Amino acid sequence: MESSRAVEEVDASPFLSVDTAAPAPSLTDTASFRQILQDDQAPTYRLYSALFAVKNRGGAEAVEAIVVALGCESALLKHEVTYVLGQLQEICTIDALIQSLENGLEHPKVRHEAAEALGSIAKPF
Rank of each mutant, 00 (worst) to 15 (best):
C72Q: 12
E73M: 03
E90M: 04
T93W: 04
D11C: 08
A31T: 02
D19G: 00
E106L: 00
L97S: 11
V81G: 03
S32T: 10
L70M: 10
A69P: 01
M1Y: 09
F52M: 02
E73T: 07
E113S: 10
S100T: 10
K123F: 12
K55S: 08
E90G: 04
L97R: 09
E9P: 01
E90S: 09
K109Y: 14
A12Y: 09
D95S: 15
L76D: 10
T28Y: 13
Q99S: 14
H112N: 13
Q89R: 15
T93P: 08
A117E: 07
F15D: 02
P108D: 02
F52T: 00
V54G: 06
N103R: 08
L37H: 08
S32W: 03
D11E: 10
E9A: 06
A60R: 14
L76N: 08
E73Y: 06
A69W: 06
I91N: 12
A12I: 02
I121H: 12
V54F: 00
Q35H: 11
R57E: 14
R34A: 13
R5C: 00
L118R: 13
I36G: 05
E90Q: 12
Y45Q: 14
T30E: 08
I94K: 13
T28E: 09
A114Y: 11
V63R: 14
L118G: 11
T93V: 15
A50R: 00
R57S: 08
